[in-house]
C-alpha cells in the first residue's frame, strides 16, 4: 500500500523566479521523511511538486522527474487529479470545508468523486476518524459543522479527510505549527501510527519534532535571498542530527544558523 518516491533533477519556478534547483532524493515506502531548513528555502515548494499541487498557482512550473513506484508524475498523459488521489496532502493551516459537517468533511474526497453507498461512507468515516485519533471526541456530533472544532481537532479532521481517500503517500506541510503542545503530541503519535500504512513526508521548523518522528531528514538551504533553494544534505535522521556531513547542516540543526 505504500510507495517509494524518486526525485531527480527537480527544479521549480514561480513564473521567472527559480525557487528551488536540482533536488535529488529518494523517499522510502512506509517511512517518515522530514524536510527542514530556513524559511524561504523551498521546502513547501518541493513538497507541493510531489503531488502536482505546485502547478495550481498561475505561472508555476516544474522541471525534472518525480517517480512514484517508477511512474513519472510529470510524464505525458499523467492526470494530476489521479496523482492527487494517490498522494494526499495536509496543509499548514487547518482548512475544513465550512459548508460541510464533520461527517461530510471526512468523506468529501469520496463523495465529490462520486461514491454514494451509505454503508461504505459510514464505515469509512469511522475508520478515518479513528485513524486520525478524533473519533472519540466527535462521534456524538458528526452532524455539526467541521469549522466548529478547535484548531487541533480541525487539523486532525483534515488528516482524517486526507486518509479517507486511501492515498499511498501523505504530505504534511507544517501540520503542527498552529497547534498547542498537546495537540502537537497527538499528531506526532498519529504520524508514527500512520507510518505503518503510508509513506509520509513532513515539513517542520521544529528540530525536536523532526528528530522524534522522522526516519530520514532532508535539509534544504539557500545561499542568499533571490537564489534558488537547494538540497544540502539528505540522510538518516540520526545521522543528520548527530553527525552531519555538511558544516551548514550542523550549524542549522545546532542552532548556529545565520
Amino acid at each position: 500500500m505504500a510507495t517509494r518516491i524518486d526525485v531527480t533533477g527537480l527544479t521549480a519556478y514561480y513564473g521567472k523566479f527559480k525557487a528551488v534547483a536540482d533536488v535529488n532524493l529518494t523517499i522510502e515506502p512506509k517511512n517518515v521523511t522530514a524536510f527542514i531548513g530556513p524559511s524561504g528555502c523551498g521546502k513547501s515548494t518541493v513538497l507541493r511538486t510531489l503531488n502536482r499541487m505546485h502547478e495550481v498557482l498561475p505561472g508555476a512550473r516544474v522541471e525534472g522527474k518525480v517517480l512514484l513506484d517508477g511512474e513519472d508524475l510529470y510524464g505525458a498523459g499523467t492526470d494530476p487529479v489521479n496523482v492527487r488521489r494517490t498522494v494526499g496532502m495536509v496543509f499548514q493551516r487547518p482548512n475544513p470545508f465550512p459548508t460541510m459537517s464533520i461527517y461530510e468533511n471526512v468523506i468529501a474526497g469520496l463523495k465529490l468523486n462520486g461514491v454514494r453507498k451509505k454503508a461504505l461512507l459510514d464505515e469509512r468515516v469511522e475508520e478515518s476518524l479513528r485513524g486520525a485519533n478524533l473519533w472519540e471526541e466527535v462521534k456524538d456530533r458528526l452532524g455539526r459543522p467541521g469549522a466548529g472544532l478547535s484548531g487541533g481537532q480541525q487539523q486532525r479532521l483534515c488528516i482524517a479527510r486526507a486518509i479517507a481517500v486511501e492515498p499511498q503517500v501523505l504530505l504534511m506541510d507544517e501540520p503542527c505549527s498552529a497547534l498547542d503542545p498537546i495537540s502537537t503530541l497527538a499528531i506526532e503519535d498519529l504520524i508514527t501510527k500512520l507510518k505503518s500504512s503510508f509513506t509520509i513526508v513532513i515539513v517542520t521548523h521544529n528540530m525536536q519534532q523532526a528528530s522524534r518522528v522522522s526516519d530520514t531528514t532532508a535539509f534544504f538551504s539557500l545561499e542568499k535571498t533571490g537564489d534558488p533553494g537547494r538540497l544540502v544534505e539528505f540522510d538518516k535522521t540520526s545521522k543528520i542530527f548527530t553527525n552531519p556531513t555538511e558544516k551548514r547542516t550542523e550549524d542549522y540543526v545546532s542552532g548556529r544558523f545565520g
Binding site: F91, P98, A108
Partner: peptide
C-alpha cells in the same frame, strides 16, 4: 485554501 484542499483530495 479551500480550493487547494479540494484539489489535494483528487477532486
Amino acid at each position: 485554501e479551500l480550493r487547494e484542499a479540494g484539489y489535494a483530495l483528487g477532486v
